[in-house]
């Protein structure tokens, strides 16, 4: 029983991070039809920026803010300079481009920050909380993770639902040409979308790093889990991404707890293939006809 609860709690924390990463992928996919595989190394780079500041003696929170801010800039610059030229090209060009970016950022981080594991501080305690005499596997840091992701979700929801710029962003994503005819600067909205996505991606990078080890490749598997989570949610719906992330986090936590941690990636692959075969539009799709 205790193991069950602990596995579920661990899964929820992890799921929150996957949800954030999936959300970052979805924000970009629904406006540009590009899955940004480079999101993982982008988040890694911003986490290293945070670590550099923290190691230089600044507080955790300064590093945290700097990482999010540099994510914003990085996302905008990458969209503007590198992605814009392939936005109307065959989709395979964009895929290869994001992978090229993946390799580049990876190597760049290894050259600048070194290619070894470094420990990243946690903002809060890493010891399990005591509930009714037993220690459960939910830490203060874990609670912070869930709260941070939830906050970002709510902020994004408010942005998209209730602000003019959010409305313009959605219009550009759904129908760029009509949006242009209604005075929306679609290019600017895409840049903004990439920037926001990169902030959310950076957040998930920071949350994974907290209290653990970072390394130029530490986000590599997260991009896969984030992708699977996003596909679970239909790859286009922010809410779907969140639900998909939590579902995946729980499932993988159970695989890891009961079958062995080596099989986590294999389980993710199986889940992905099952969804793509049975419900290609995601778990919540109404119509199943969809090209994947």
């Amino acid at each position: 029983m205790q193991q069950l609860v602990n596995t579920a709690l661990g899964g929820l924390t992890l799921g929150a991070v996957y949800a954030a990463f999936a959300l970052a992928l979805v924000l970009i996919f629904r406006s540009t039809r590009i899955v940004n595989f480079a999101q993982a190394p982008m988040a890694m780079v911003t986490t290293f920026i945070a670590l550099t500041l923290i190691d230089a003696g600044y507080s955790y929170w300064i590093g945290f803010a700097a990482a999010l801010l540099s994510g914003l800039v990085l996302g905008a610059v990458i969209e503007r300079v590198i992605i814009r030229p392939v936005e109307d090209k065959p989709e395979i060009n964009a895929v290869i481009l994001t992978l090229g970016l993946f390799i580049t950022l990876h190597a760049l981080a290894a050259v600048i920050f070194g290619n070894r594991f470094r420990s990243f501080p946690a903002p809060f305690g890493l010891r399990g909380l005591e509930v009714g005499g037993t220690t459960i596997r939910l830490t203060t840091s874990g609670i912070f993770t869930i709260a941070a992701v939830a906050t970002v979700m709510v902020l994004l929801l408010l942005l998209f639902r209730y602000t003019d710029v959010g409305l313009r962003m959605r219009a550009s994503a759904y129908n760029p040409e009509v949006a242009r005819l209604l005075g929306v600067r679609v290019g600017r909205m895409l840049t903004l979308g990439w920037a926001l996505a990169a902030v959310v991606g950076s957040l998930s990078g920071l949350l994974i790093a907290s209290g653990g080890l970072v390394h130029p490749g530490y986000m590599d598997s997260i991009v896969v889990y984030g992708f699977v989570a996003a596909v679970l949610g239909g790859l286009e719906s922010p809410v779907g991404a969140v639900v998909g992330g939590l579902t995946l986090g729980l499932s993988l936590s159970f695989v890891s707890g009961y079958l062995g941690s080596e099989l986590v990636a294999l389980a993710a692959l199986l889940i992905l293939m099952l969804v793509l075969t049975l419900k290609p539009g995601g778990l919540f799709a109404v119509a199943s006809a969809r090209r994947v």
Partner: peptide, 15 residues
């Protein structure tokens, strides 16, 4: 824009 509500479509026009 079918994914937006009627009022959102109109709001876009107003913007």
């Amino acid at each position: 824009i079918t994914e937006l509500t009627i009022e959102e479509n109109l709001r876009l026009g107003g913007l």
